[in-house]
């Protein structure tokens, strides 16, 4: 294997897990904005309960990352993504390839006070990279990638999507190993939409579990959840293809069944009667699904059919009980199955 340093931005649990994956193939330069974390990683090779490969070196200098690495994986939450890009932007050039792994939207408006969103207000992370930097070769990594399982070295897979085949190829070379398989796709928008939208379905799944509903109910949720994810994405001109792959059905299966998923836990605790603010405090990291739900609601004037999002929104942001939400969903007229496929 050739000598190369691959950059990773973000020292959250996912950033650490991906760094370890890449370390199978290349040296890794891991960026953290927190100097203590940088020191800790460089001194102890351990952070957030993950043992880190010795091939991972941490830094707090964006210029160094951009100078030494042409391939960089930004893996920071969507809320910090723009700020991170603005820090890196002066050093990024069209030479760089960026493959992000962030399953969230960036919203150009103040989400808390917005009454309606237009498509132009909503950016996927790859669109934000294109907007904020000179980089054009952009990709996205999405799939059933629970950080804890990757960290434990369990077998898994993902998809790397980009309009550029060379981005997919370089991403695969960095990520693939005998425990992890990275598939390729040119449907970047679909893959990103799938990665983001599954977040709120996971919240619903956590709720169902806490209510003691069984596997039939969960399958119903996942299947209809995927249908409405596709309806929403089609309004953004994404095709349904990505939803049948790792980022769609693959990610839904994992995240709707796993207690490791933050979104799932949010739903679970809500159903137990805990308050959202307390849950967010307890989980410690952002649950993108709560934000996604609001975004979907504010986009609903585009006329897509998203009853699960409607019900969840009323439960989380409104006054509905979970039972009322379930009743609402079960009393709707039934349509044709899988009508998103021609």
């Amino acid at each position: 294997m050739e000598k190369r340093i691959v950059g990773v931005i973000g020292s959250g649990s996912f950033g650490l897990a991906v760094s370890n994956l890449i370390a199978h193939n290349y040296d890794v330069m891991l960026f953290s904005r927190n100097p203590d974390v940088v020191d800790k990683i460089n001194n102890t090779h351990e952070h957030k309960d993950q043992k880190l490969s010795e091939k991972i070196i941490a830094t707090g200098d964006p210029e160094e990352v951009a100078r030494k690495c042409f391939l960089i994986f930004p893996l920071v939450p969507s809320n910090n993504f723009q700020e991170m890009l603005r820090n890196f932007s002066p050093y990024l050039t069209p030479r760089h390839i960026l493959i992000h792994g962030t399953k969230g939207f960036h919203i150009e408006k103040d989400l808390a006070n917005a009454e309606k969103l237009d498509k132009e207000d909503v950016y996927t992370m790859s669109e934000l990279i294109l907007k904020e930097t000179s980089v054009v070769r952009v990709g996205c990594m999405a799939g059933p990638n629970l950080a804890r399982e990757i960290a434990d070295g369990q077998v898994g897979g993902t998809v790397i999507a980009s309009r550029f085949n060379e981005v997919i190829k370089e991403g695969q070379k960095a990520i693939n190993s005998n425990v992890f398989r990275a598939y390729g796709s040119n449907e970047i928008l679909g893959v990103e939409m799938a990665g983001v939208l599954k977040n709120y379905i996971a919240i619903a799944s956590g709720m169902l579990n806490a209510l003691g509903l069984g596997d039939n109910a969960k399958s119903l949720l996942i299947t209809r959840g995927m249908a409405e994810m596709i309806y929403i994405s089609k309004a953004f001109n994404a095709s349904e293809k990505a939803f049948l792959g790792m980022a769609g059905i693959g990610d839904l299966m994992a995240t709707c069944n796993s207690k490791l998923s933050r979104n799932y836990r949010v739903g679970y605790f809500l159903a137990e009667g805990k308050k959202l603010e307390d849950i967010i405090k307890e989980i410690g990291e952002v649950a993108e699904g709560v934000k996604t739900l609001k975004v979907v609601k504010l986009l609903s004037h585009y006329g897509f059919n998203a009853p699960i999002a409607d019900a969840l929104y009323e439960i989380i942001y409104g006054e509905w009980s979970i039972e009322k939400g379930v009743n609402f969903l079960m009393s709707r007229p039934v349509s044709f199955d899988a009508d998103y496929v021609d």
Binding site: F70, T93, R95, I97, F164, E166
Partner: peptide, 29 residues
């Protein structure tokens, strides 16, 4: 580029510090 940052056109054709040919990339460009 669109935000007013200087860019070198050569960089668009570089991969890992090498000038490379990639017809699929050319199509996207």
């Amino acid at each position: 580029d669109k935000s007013g940052q200087k860019v070198e056109i050569r960089d668009y054709f570089m991969l890992n510090n090498q000038l490379t040919q990639d017809s699929q990339r050319d199509q996207q460009y």
